[in-house]
Each structure stands twice: as structure tokens, then as C-alpha cells.
Write a protein that binds this DNA or RNA. Structure first.
Length: 383
RNA sequence: GGGCGGUUCGCAUAGCGGCUAUUGCAUCUGGCUGUAGACCAGACGUCUUCUGACUUCGGGGGUUCGAGUCCCUCACCGCCCA
């Protein structure tokens, strides 16, 4: 079970400082949540993850169910024992894969819409348009395994049972993350499904050893977001996830948060799913978000990008071969204290895996430090 | 000195008479927000009013309506024999 204590509320915004206590440690919120899809922060060992100031990670039900299978994890003593990640762990429900392996894969669109596919520009995904490799029904979702093409089925009950076997501290309800291309009619139907699944998740869940967060959907429609927030709040979850398509711009996303958060119980933690560019962080925290996960620091690291005080640099560019500065001279991480851009650039260009590891370490340390500074600002009444 | 094989974008390759010369690597640019993806997309002879124009398969010559492709010759590289 978890316990969430709000230790300070900002007078300048809806930001708050909190402590999220779990059986595996306490998270100072607001906190960034690095993504450990396969029960690992890619490239890092468990002890290295701790050194990046990471407080909590999120793993994935869908991926661990496919491989190695939840029974393997369970027989190891649960995900903490299995991975040796000695910290609070969340598991995402597989709901995002409903989108990312479905409409997302078909259209090449992310959940923040930046462009419209198709020549004529604004073709919506109509209610009769279905993703090719995936079938969504009111009962659940038929997936095609990206590993071997096997057909598999996931629904609320199964997602919860898998998550119970994995044994994370916090579970997420099984939802449908909709595409930003879907029209209102589709979103309306999808939202009913997500709400029904939320009830079924609570019903399926045994005991209170693990906490469970319900997920608000509703796309970019104000009334649907409000309705969803009120409904999910009424079910008595331990906390909330805010998910789904978040509009076409950051402004849309901020509006969605503004519509949603006031309808969620104040004393419970709020997690914004899958958002976390550095530029977004202050604003989402000011709107009242306590937790947010994002693949960006780890994902970009493996593409050669480092986040630094001045922005972002790509270490695969040959210009850095002659750059003897650290990635970021203000950063206190071990990578910035020891290594030069020149060396890391060499590793990336030589495709040496240690280059990916050094960038992953730095990016996580940088992101976590960034949020730490925001916590200080709230503490000091500056935000 | 003789015989055989080769020379195609930075490197490596395909092409064996017929539209626009193949593919890989490398390079450069762009993208990535609850991880399918240490990935994807584009460019990669020259010029360009971004639509096209011109030029290319070691050099030179020839055959042919048409040659990277066939013939002659020269240069260079590799292997074998003296």
C-alpha cells in the first residue's frame, strides 16, 4: 500500500511538494519517473540507476508478459527481486500499447499530434477505421506480438493479474490510449470502454498490498475530460494517471490538465503519463502534477543526444570529436566529472555501447536534478 | 618476357547490348513525449529560378540505331608461369 502526504502547497500555483511512501522507499514529489519497460533502464545496472538520483521507475505489463512472462518474474520473488531495482516501481497496464502498436504504428503519429498524415491533411480515424494489427473490443484488446506475430489478448482482469504477478508497488488501470486522429464519436465510445475497464480493474484486484491508479482519458474534448476525471475519481483509486492524446500542442496539453485536475481528489497523487520534455516540466508541475514518466532521456541517449543546460547536443556529430569540455560543465554527474565530449563522441561514432550508457546516465541525472531544482523552488516559494 | 583475372560515388559491390547504373557501409540532415525500434526517414556526380538541365562506369580509339556491357590499344592492380 502507498501513503501520500502533501507537505507543502504553493501559493503561486497548483504545485505541491509531497512524499509518496511505498514498501520500497519514499518518493519526494514532484518526481520524474524514468521508463524501465523491460524491467531495466536500458544500458544501466540497478546500482547505476540509483546513482542517477532516480527515485522510482515504471515498467511495462505488456512487454514483461510477452517476455519473459510474469510467472518468471513472480518466481524470482517479484519485479524488485528479479531486477534488483531497489526502489518504488510502477507497472503500466499495457493500455498505451493499445495505441502505440495500433493506430500509432499504422499512422506513424505520436500522442501529441504534430502533423496530419495523408495528402488531404485532416483525415480523421473514423469509427469504422481500425488499426491493422490490433483489434479493440469492449471486452478487451487482441494484440499481435511485435516479437513473433502471435495473437494475444489483454483485458482489464488479465492486465491486473499480470501486474499482481509482477509485484510492483503501483499498478495502472488498463485503458485505451486513443489516437489524436480519432474523431469525437470514436473517443466517446472509447471513453465508455476505458471507464468500464477501470471498474473491472478494481474488481479484479486482490488485497491492498499494491496500489492502483485509475486513468483519465477523453482526448482533447473538455466535457469528456471533465466527465472522465469525475468518473475515475468516484471509483476510489489510490491515485490518478492522466493519459491519452494530449492535443496538438503544449497549450492543448495544459488546457487538458486545467480541465482534469480540479476534479481529482486533492490528497491523492496525480501522474501525467508519458510527458516530460524539460520545457514541459515546470508547467505541468505548476498545474498540479506529482509524477510524470517519459522515455525521452533514455531514448534520446541511445540516439546520441545529451540534454545540457544550453539545450541538447548530438554527440554523433563530428564537431564534438575535438571538444574537450564535459557534456555540461554545470552538471555534477560522474560522466560530466570524468569524461569529455570528445571521448563520448568517439564512442558513439564507433558504436561502442558504453557511449549509450554514459549518455543514458547523464541524461537521467540531468532530468532528475532538473526536477530536484523545481522541488527546491516550490519549497522556497518561488514556484 | 608469357598467361589469366580485374579497374563502376569515400570504401565495398551488382550490372554481361536497350528506359532513370544496383545494393551495403561510411558521411550529412531531420524526426523521436505511459519504449516495437542502440531506431526511422531523407540526401549523398555538377549546376539550379527547386522545376529541371548537364555529366558519368581507369585513358584513348572503334563496332552498333544504341556501349558500363562487344573489339583494339594504353595505363595501373592482383595471381600464376618463366
Amino acid at each position: 500500500m502507498i501513503e501520500f502526504k502533501i507537505i507543502k502547497k504553493s501559493r503561486k500555483s497548483n504545485a505541491r511538494l509531497g512524499l509518496l511512501k511505498t514498501a520500497h522507499g519514499t518518493v519526494r514529489t514532484p518526481s520524474f519517473v524514468p521508463v524501465a519497460t523491460q524491467a531495466v533502464i536500458k544500458t544501466l545496472s540497478a546500482d547505476e540507476v540509483l546513482k542517477t538520483k532516480t527515485q522510482i521507475v515504471i515498467s511495462n505489463t505488456f512487454h514483461l508478459h510477452l517476455r519473459p512472462g510474469e510467472n518468471i518474474v513472480k518466481s524470482a520473488g517479484g519485479i524488485h527481486q528479479f531486477s534488483r531495482l531497489d526502489m518504488p516501481i510502477m507497472t503500466d497496464s499495457g493500455g498505451f500499447q493499445v495505441f502505440s502498436l495500433g493506430f500509432g504504428m499504422d499512422t506513424g503519429v505520436g500522442k501529441m499530434l504534430k502533423y496530419f498524415p495523408g495528402e488531404d491533411g485532416k483525415e480523421s480515424v473514423r469509427k469504422n477505421s481500425k488499426p491493422k494489427d490490433l483489434e479493440i473490443t469492449d471486452k478487451g484488446v487482441f494484440f499481435r506480438s511485435p516479437l513473433n506475430g502471435n495473437r494475444l489478448f489483454l483485458d482489464a482482469k488479465k492486465s491486473i493479474k499480470i501486474q499482481e504477478s509482477l509485484g510492483a508497488d503501483i499498478l495502472f488501470a488498463f485503458d485505451e490510449c486513443t489516437s489524436p486522429l480519432s474523431d469525437r464519436e470514436y473517443i466517446r465510445a472509447s471513453l465508455s470502454r476505458t471507464h468500464d475497464w477501470a471498474k473491472r480493474c478494481l474488481k479484479a484486484k486482490n488485497g491492498n498490498r499494491q496500489a492502483i491508479f485509475g486513468i483519465v482519458q477523453g482526448s482533447h474534448f473538455k466535457d469528456l475530460r471533465e466527465e472522465s476525471a469525475k468518473f475515475i475519481d468516484s471509483l476510489g483509486f489510490d491515485g490518478y494517471g492522466i493519459g491519452g492524446d494530449l492535443g496538438k500542442s503544449k497549450k492543448d496539453m495544459m488546457n487538458i490538465l486545467k480541465w482534469t485536475i480540479p476534479h481529482l481528489s486533492e490528497e491523492k497523487p496525480r501522474h501525467l503519463l508519458g510527458v516530460g520534455y524539460l520545457d514541459d516540466m515546470e508547467d505541468i508541475i505548476k498545474s498540479g502534477i506529482d509524477l510524470f514518466d517519459c522515455t525521452v532521456p533514455t531514448h534520446y541517449a541511445r540516439r546520441g543526444s545529451a540534454f545540457i543546460s544550453e539545450g541538447k547536443i548530438n554527440l554523433s556529430r563530428s564537431i564534438f570529436l575535438r571538444d574537450k569540455k564535459p557534456l555540461d560543465k554545470k552538471c555534477e554527474c560522474i560522466v560530466c566529472r570524468i569524461y569529455t565530449r570528445s571521448y563520448i563522441c568517439h564512442l558513439i561514432r564507433a558504436k561502442e555501447i558504453t557511449g549509450l550508457k554514459l549518455l543514458t546516465f547523464h541524461n537521467l541525472f540531468f532530468f532528475n536534478t532538473f526536477v530536484e531544482n523545481i522541488r527546491d523552488k516550490i519549497k522556497n516559494g518561488k514556484l
